[in-house]
Simulated scan of single mutants.
Amino acid sequence: MMTSLSFREVWEAKSRIASFVQSTPILYSEPLSERTGARVHLKLEHTHPTGSFKLRGAANKILSLPEEDLKKGVTTFSTGNHGISVAYIAAQLGIPCTVCISNRVPEAKVNRLKKLQAGVEIVGKSQDDAEARCTELERDEGMTVIKPFDDREIIAGQGTIALEIMEQCPDVDEVIIPLSGGGLLSGVAFVMKSIEPSILVTGVTMQKGAVMQESLAKGKPVILEESYTLADSLLGGIGTENRYTFPMTKAFMDKGVLVEETHIEEGLIFTLEHHKMVVEGAAATGIGHLLHCNDLQGKNVVVVMTGNNIDHQAVTDLLAKS
């Protein structure tokens, strides 16, 4: 399977983003290890200043642009975390930035975008609607669209996570990755499989609106209606003209798992109680899967903890319910 991505591009990304993106810690989870019989490590991508792994891809893409394009500014469509990361890098570089989002994006993420001085446009009910507005801004104002996932530089940037995992936990047997548009999984899985093909890659997502999973089942990108989920960062389409992440996910993901909403909630509460970490639903999806997985005995497992941008009220409501 040709991916149009090379291992060199990931190393170039690591060098390019070094002044903006620091390596994140990896944490051995004793409670999860005891629960599963595996040796479980958590890759703490929510510790970036933007609160998510998306900083890596956004930095790599923006820093790869020519100077004349940077002056015209950047725009993106996002369920929140990618938009926050694009806005953060744009602010660091002092360039114009407009983030287009749907009306499903939580208020906490909208407020974060505004604090970063990004222009925010709320468009329609889905990421596809927001993407259409970005295309208009590109056409009318010359802004560069920074795609959330289906882009070589974005994928290469996310792939730098795998370089760190291999340094921090070189005996990893399986990596568990939240799956939405597939930029994270494509980058991490590409690097993992390039280094050691036997490493298992498991993609986890919520049950309703799992667009990548449904697209893989149908053999082509499909469009699904979005519905409420605690893992709101995993919402959004993959694009009917998907060039990279659909074929790369198909090539490199060994197993795709749909995680029940109650298990995602359980994962968030477990992380808060046992590790004193507040993470968003997307990050808790991997933990929710682990808590109900029976085939990890003796394995070295790494779970990518993707982000922490969650409304305080959502956490309060969840604690009151539990």
Rank of each mutant, 00 (worst) to 15 (best):
M2P: 13
M2L: 14
T3K: 05
W11P: 01
A13K: 01
S15T: 15
R16F: 10
I17Y: 04
V21C: 13
V21L: 07
T24G: 02
T24W: 06
I26W: 05
Y28A: 02
S33C: 05
T36V: 01
E45P: 01
H46P: 03
H48Q: 15
S64P: 11
P66R: 12
E68C: 11
N81Q: 02
A91Q: 14
Q92S: 15
L93K: 12
I95K: 07
I95G: 04
T98W: 06
C100V: 02
I101H: 01
S102H: 03
P106S: 01
K125V: 13
Q127R: 14
D129I: 00
E131G: 12
A132W: 01
R133K: 14
R133N: 03
C134Q: 04
L137D: 08
E141R: 15
E141P: 01
T144Q: 05
I146L: 02
F149L: 00
D151I: 06
A156D: 05
A156E: 07
A162W: 00
L163H: 03
E164R: 07
Q168H: 04
D173G: 05
G181M: 03
G182E: 06
S186F: 09
A189D: 10
S198H: 12
G203Q: 11
V204N: 06
T205E: 15
T205I: 10
K208V: 14
A210D: 10
G237N: 06
E241T: 13
Y244K: 05
T249L: 04
M253H: 03
D254A: 01
K255W: 09
V257R: 09
V257I: 15
E261G: 03
L268I: 11
I269D: 06
I269N: 00
T271Q: 00
L290A: 09
L290Q: 09
C293D: 14
N294E: 14
D295A: 13
N300E: 14
N300M: 13
V301K: 03
V302Q: 06
V302I: 14
V303I: 14
N308E: 09
N308G: 15
N309S: 09
N309L: 10
H312K: 14
D317S: 12
L318D: 04
A320S: 15
K321W: 10
S322Q: 14
